[in-house]
């Protein structure tokens, strides 16, 4: 399966607010970042924790966020590793 996102693409961290384990820090949820690189393909921790017999394997992306967007202040970036199913394409203008 091809990677859904490409380097440089803007992505929105969009997780269902469902019970269970998600390997995404709360502070990036609902925020838009930029894909820097693909950091391999890995089993989805959500599935592992749910003890699924055949957990999904997905690309994991290094996504950079502007501090100003995350915290309302700061001129740095924070880069977080996020599984493909945590992400959707960001709408234009975000």
């Amino acid at each position: 399966m091809d990677d859904r996102f490409r380097t440089g693409e803007r992505v929105l961290v969009s997780l269902p607010d469902s019970p269970g384990h998600h390997r995404a820090p709360r502070y990036v949820r609902g925020h838009v970042g930029t894909v820097l690189a693909v950091h391999g393909r890995h089993v989805l921790p959500d599935d592992v924790v749910a003890r699924m017999a055949e957990p999904h394997v997905e690309p994991v992306y290094a996504v950079a966020f502007a501090a100003g967007a995350l915290w309302g202040a700061g001129d740095h970036t924070v880069t977080v590793n996020l599984w493909e199913s945590y992400l959707e394409p960001a709408e234009e203008g975000r």
Partner: peptide
């Protein structure tokens, strides 16, 4: 400044 939030995989 670039902050990198490491994970089990990376």
């Amino acid at each position: 400044v670039r902050v990198w939030d490491a994970s089990a995989e990376t």
